[in-house]
Amino acid sequence: MSTAAVQQGTKWWSGGRSPFNASYGKVMMWYFLMSDAFTFGAFLISYGTIRFSVNNWADPNHVFNSFPFAGHMNLPLAFVSLMTFILIASSVTMVLAVHEGHNMNRKGVEKYMILTIIGGLAFLSCQAWEWTHLLTGEHIALLSDGTLSVLPTTVKANPWGTALPHEAIAAALQTTPHDQLASIAATLQHGGEVHNVAAMSNADLIKFIESSDIHASNTGPIAFGGYFFGITGFHGFHVFSGVVINIVMLTKTRLGHFDERGHYEMIEKAGLYWHFVDLVWVFVFLCFYLI
């Protein structure tokens, strides 16, 4: 690069100039991101520590195996790959906006900023769907009082323990009270004939439940929900604030503030933040979905 020639012999640290050839704003943004990396790092490392400290953890391939409008198809990793690609694509449009900014091309910056904002909103929508799916999804789990019950994935309940063998399910059904049996039966009659489960007797319910091929598991560590919602929520909050920042930057671009100023450095700084959000997702993706 041609910059190498300028670097030669420049006394970077002697004062009167930035040793980084960067404005204080950019330097501050970098160190802020480093600091934020420690916030996220602390979250993810806490999660890792807890995962190391328990014997089982929820298997991500079972927890995250659905896709919008795909019904009960088993599609492990599919939806989260979509989310990852959305974020990578929006990162590309962001870096293209920064590039157009260097060329002082206002129209180009506007175009790519709009695309980036759309990408961010798409990612947030995906996350909203995934959260809703987990919070309202019902999975049959063995409670520690020996009965079966339908449980959602929340910060207070985790139905993703080890799988129960069939004999254990049969035994547990015998001790399960009526209302729990009814709610289990209600989750099973998708698409088929509708039974009035509340009116059925316990024996009929058990027969009905056993006739359909049900999967049940032990409850898993409750900490799972907290960490998942906590960390993806904190990341989602960053995406949200990134979208807000990008909207502000888009407005300022349209108003011609950066043309007046003579440079598009603000876009560059917003870009740094946006890429950082992408970077964090790379690690969230690794820690929650892949391993």
């Binding site: 690069m1 970077w12 040793p19 980084f20 050839n21 990162s91 870009g271 740094l272 890429h275």
Partner: peptide, 19 residues
């Protein structure tokens, strides 16, 4: 992946060595 994002997208690779 993190290396590529930081180095190319965030332009850290293009900054001076000090930074």
């Amino acid at each position: 992946k993190a290396y590529y994002i930081v180095s190319v997208f965030m332009h850290l690779g293009d900054e001076v060595r000090n930074l």
